[in-house]
Design a protein around this nucleic acid. Structure first.
Lengths: 350, 350
DNA sequence: CGATCTTGCAGAAACCGTTCTTCTGAGGCG
DNA sequence: CGCCTCAGAAGAACGGTTTCTGCAAGATCG
């Protein structure tokens, strides 16, 4: 039982190949009767046009790459895990809704894999400086949209990102309002834009309010290093009374470290971390998190990319900044029965 | 600047198209000098073979589908979230290592998307009974391997699954050993194989040890229903003194419910749930979880699928049962809070 | 020294749907 | 009645690669 081709349909319907193609794709000038007849015959034969042939002729594959920079062997790291999963999920939905499918392609994939897939465009998550793969793609004229500001002068067609400075400043203010007097930061040693922007925002805030910065940096892609860094931060002589952790696992890391030092959260230590994990609603105490809203980002990135592929919208670079969301939980709110220092600005949260 | 085709390379190198193809793919009978020359010219011209043309000719796209049954709009549900993300990650790595890329294609995708992608094979996660997409794929001769036993008589080429009965029995024994006298179950109302096998294993165990079953079932794909069901379970007159929850969020749901009823974990209530979330190491108390080891499953599924695509290995259905891993934490231990890692009773150690 | 093999490469078919061009009547219009 | 237009449909080119077949020229062998 051979797969039916367009010729088979043409022969069975008693028309030409052209007519079949036109009838099925709604093109050409054909009377409805012919159209219906051809469609019916095609159905009866179980005809499915060959995706490969169509791609070859039209130059469109309907495939979008989802590229993520890798550390070591894994497609994405532990720290980015929940973020990436959510973002990929939203991107998949958005792409599908417009008739495209997503191909997962880590930047460090074997070169032959990249060469073997016909991509109409690519989403790049957190492109590293001068990423050779991205550079090559752009050179070939493949539309590229990035999640996260492209580092350096990577010539992407558009990017979507959060306003990381704004987010950090908001959190620091929130902690200060809750009574924090020395806010520490758990940050990364990597040079990516997220880490860099967040850290400088922290340093600027410290300078503005006149607080000595208290931070520890660690290699964020190492799943064990976070716990050690959290410990170091709380072991310092100038121990902070509030900490913001830039990476997803920092919440549990800091909570565990606090327990080891006999610090009660939020009484002795206020805690916030950046995470998409719903688990932080169930820790004891629940931890306040900053959500980067990966779903909105994933959707936006795909829309922008498909617009670029289909030649819709502005021909030149688009930059879209998405809001973040602070999910306030017990870890960043002092108990009401406790004597609170009057907050530096604004009324305290009820 | 047009993209260079194989003809351009042939012309520039002063040889035939055949020679270029052979030289670049290491086939044919060519002296090394010619090979080198052609390669050099191809490099100079920036020649990249067209993936579409190659696919058309060879019938191989190098693309593997990753299909997941959907509830509502989303590609995968909240309950399966962490599992799926881990599994997809492992599958991606495994596929890439063998030169294939993964395409994410929910079973409910628009039909045109399925038709527009040339797939060499598909991984189906938890195929539902008589899934029309899978049936169609198999009919077309596309290799299909499933994660989870296929329901009904879905004719997949191979499947990989955990031994769910074994796992449940192991957990129940573990809880009984920790002192549980009435073990409850939080289960689902869905008819999928995982839920069905786990529940019947529970019922059998109850019968064997002479315990009256105490369980609550809820629609697992509803993110809110779990909390309600957990509450119901602990509100019963015959309240259990230990609970196993079949789904990922059950741990936090049960913990919250226990708090509401003033039950201490593990003193008054022992808790275990099936989850891949690392967050359960950081709750108070840390919760014992059963890991289905999605990474091993994702890897195995892809290996099996690619073997089938490439015609390696047994021509007929393979069934591979993977071990689970019980990560014992404080929530299921009454005495010392030592953390051990042990698989449930091995099948051959009887 | 002719027959057979091997080497090095070229030509052309095949893959299969889309699109561009052309052809044929039929009907409208002057 | 002849010319023009246009609906309707057919034919052929096209896209880029792989692969099968073929052909000369030199090497080997009996």
């Amino acid at each position: 039982m051979e797969r039916a081709g367009i010729r088979d349909v043409a022969a069975a319907a008693g028309v030409s190949i052209t007519t079949v193609s036109d009838a099925l794709n709604g093109k050409g000038r054909l009377p409805d009767a012919t159209r219906r007849h051809v469609r019916e015959v095609a159905d009866r034969l179980g005809y499915r046009p060959s995706a490969a042939a169509r791609t070859l002729r039209t130059g469109r594959s309907g495939l979008i790459g989802l590229t993520v920079t890798t550390y070591g062997e894994e497609p994405f790291t532990f720290t980015e895990f929940a973020y990436f999963a959510e973002m990929a999920r939203a991107a998949t939905s958005a792409a599908l809704a417009r008739g495209y499918a997503l191909v997962i392609l880590p930047a460090s994939s074997r070169h032959d894999v990249w060469g073997n897939v016909a991509l109409d465009g690519t989403v790049v998550v957190d492109p590293s400086d001068q990423d050779p793969v991205v550079t090559e793609l752009v050179r070939q004229g493949v539309p590229v949209v990035s999640d996260g500001r492209p580092a350096g002068s990577l010539p992407v067609h558009a990017w979507v990102d959060n306003d990381h400075e704004e987010a950090v400043l908001g959190i620091l203010d929130h902690l200060a309002e809750a009574g924090a007097r020395r806010i520490g930061l758990l940050t990364g040693t990597t040079t990516d834009t997220y880490t860099r922007l967040s850290t400088t925002a922290y340093l600027e805030w410290c300078e503005r309010v006149g607080q000595e910065p208290v931070y520890e940096a660690y290699p964020a892609h190492d799943p064990c290093a976070g716990a050690v860094a959290a410990d170091r931060l709380l072991a310092r002589p100038d121990r902070p009374d509030a900490v913001y952790g830039l990476f997803d696992p920092n919440g549990t890391d800091l909570l565990a470290a606090a327990r080891r030092y006999g610090l009660r959260v939020p009484d002795d230590l206020l805690l916030v971390c950046c995470s998409e994990s719903a688990g932080y609603a169930g820790t004891d105490p629940p931890i306040t998190t900053l959500s980067l809203q990966p779903r909105r980002i994933g959707t936006a990135v795909v829309q922008l990319l498909i617009d670029a592929i289909e030649g819709i919208g502005p021909a030149h670079p688009v930059q879209q900044v998405m809001p973040t969301e602070l999910i306030v939980r017990a870890s960043s709110q002092r108990r009401t029965h406790r004597t609170t220092v009057s907050p530096p600005r604004g009324p305290s949260h009820g």
